[in-house]
Design a protein around this nucleic acid. Structure first.
Lengths: 339, 339
DNA sequence: TCAAAACCTGAAATCGTTTTCAATAGTTTT
DNA sequence: AAAACTATTGAAAACGATTTCAGGTTTTGA
């Protein structure tokens, strides 16, 4: 029952050859004869030999593990992203270590530290909404551990990032609304610490300008992504003498919360006020009055691309110059419901 | 920049003592003098020494890693459960390897295999909905790797499981509905392969009997948890000459899908038909007409308990008899909306 | 004062695998 | 037939930390 694992030594002993031969045979090293190779493989099979990963990691100084730090698996956006990471990792015969920062910078640091101690070969990160400094990741890089960010990326020019073009998609959102005849557009922005938050806002401004609309006072409100602050933001918008006809929300969760609040104030969703947002999460399909449009940010593709870059960084210890530091995917406005 | 990690050897060399002394000093071994101990620790600190986990794993034959296999992180139930597992693991200085079966038994096998190869010290599993045989986990056990299941547990008597008492909560659901004056109750059951599915159904039957209601023909329909089958199930219920006044859905996702379908057929939710379900997921709060009641299954607590048991199994290589094999938590009916 | 106990430290083996450097045997070239 | 290859294998070191066994020094007890 408690059989101890078969080692290469055991096989060597049985075949009366050296361990080096076994190792080479199992790796299809060209200098091993066909007969011997087959013999070894056959016996290894019979004995259910499985290489001791710990020993290999130790010897090679690599763990064949990549770390992933993201805010919250409960958000569909990230759980989809994980799939992209896993798929690429599996393809490369790597395993994935996942940590959730829960949007807490301290926790993020702890996890980064733990990942470093576990000597992951590389790290994929989507930043906590509160993170403003990146030393804990610099530390990793100094230890020779490459780091690639996706979606919630830092603004440092030398870091590797994959993100969506939210500026252009924000412009597109405004365009789309204006095209529907809606010109009174409010905006719920996210935390100022987040780069993607700024991008959205800039796009909103650009969209207004492009359509010759002026920014009305009180039409931009802010949430820190908590339910409470989102409600407060929504309260502010609803208290305006002249309410916006449409509201661009930071993401679908914010939109959901805002919709919920508005509904509680007897606002007729998609009649009095339209909502549009970002992320296009599957969960919104269950609402009877979902945001009428949402910007698809392709979490799977972002994560996939980030992981591919990470593996390039892991593999090529030099010649990194060839790798693009900033990858920007085009996002897409998805219309959920025609008005 | 590409500084190679400090080893115990390096410290030994600098202090002109042996590596054994360093190792002992760092572990507070009693046989090391106070002066030496402090000296070593000071230098280790200065050099930012960090033990090579791979080397330790290798030497000790333990990876200090537990594996987790669950159907789908995208389901809030499981992403909450993960938190419980992570917390307990962190407390025990373990890391967590996560794999998603995506409800595919083949994938589940592959992951279990990969976990075994990575020599995880233990495994937490919530079964894929399609899994009917458990050899792939038996294999792990034969290799001395303990396995603990939670929520979606197998029916084998000798496995360690943590689950919720769904039978009793189903009875409670029926009681609650009857108490509201609703006696015409339909039931959307899950796949027959799942033990928890059977439990729910049994509870439903028991609840009917207890309240002297008889099972009406066509009132029990089945879904395999896909959207399509859920819609089909709902279609069947709605096509009955006498429709049920309330429907007990397998879980919140099924309920959401069923509600969506019903809505599309112009059924007035919470007027014509009431929905109740299982899981009590946060996401349902965004619906304007959510299931009026849901059975809270305490994913965090289930996962936490399962992980605690796993660590008991890992630590006590013998004396396992003391550990309870079947832990059943009481579930609770949560009322979302008074009728 | 001398033996015994207490205290502190070092040498070396060990874990499983990979890899470098040789070494042998057999084969081809000249 | 000697020289030069080629093909195949082995021996041993290395990776970093832990641990057993033993050795040396100091302190304690009588």
């Amino acid at each position: 029952m408690k059989q101890k694992p078969v080692t290469i030594k055991e096989i060597a002993k049985r075949l009366n050859v050296s361990v080096s031969t076994i190792s080479r045979a199992l790796h299809d090293h060209p200098s091993i004869g066909l007969r011997m190779r087959q013999q070894v493989k056959k016996l290894a099979e019979e004995l259910n030999y499985e290489p001791n990963q710990a020993a290999i990691s130790f010897k090679q100084g690599k763990t064949f593990t990549i770390g992933v730090i993201l805010p919250n698996l409960g958000e569909e956006f990230f759980s989809i992203a994980i799939n992209g990471i896993e798929d690429v990792a599996t393809r490369n015969k790597y395993t994935v270590l996942i940590g959730q920062s829960h949007d807490d910078t301290e926790r993020e640091k702890l996890i980064a530290d733990s990942m470093r101690k576990h000597r992951v070969d590389g790290l994929i990160v989507s930043l906590s909404k509160n993170t403003v400094s990146y030393e804990h990741f610099e530390l990793l890089k100094n230890h020779g551990i490459p780091v690639v960010f996706f979606d919630r990326v830092p603004d440092t020019p030398d870091s590797y990032t994959v993100s969506c073009n939210l500026r252009s998609s924000s412009v597109k959102l405004v365009d789309w609304l204006v095209n529907k005849g809606i010109t009174s557009i409010g905006f719920i922005k996210g935390p100022d610490t987040m780069l993607p938050s700024k991008e959205r806002l800039d796009g909103y401004f650009e969209g207004l300008k492009k359509n010759n609309l002026e920014l009305r006072p009180g039409f931009v409100v802010q949430t820190d992504l908590t339910q409470k602050k989102t409600q407060e933001a929504m309260r502010q918008l609803l208290s305006l003498k002249e309410r916006p006809r449409a509201i661009i929300a930071f993401n679908d969760y914010v939109a959901l919360e805002a919709i919920k609040y508005a509904r509680s104030k007897d606002v007729k969703i998609n009649q009095d006020i339209f909502f549009v947002s970002y992320a296009n999460l599957p969960v919104t399909s269950y609402l009877d009055e979902p945001p009428i449009a949402s910007v698809e940010q392709f979490p799977y593709q972002q994560a996939e691309k980030a992981t591919e870059i990470l593996f390039q960084l892991i593999d090529m210890k030099e010649g990194r110059e060839a790798i693009q530091r900033k990858v920007v995917l085009e996002s897409k406005v998805i219309v959920n419901k025609e008005v």
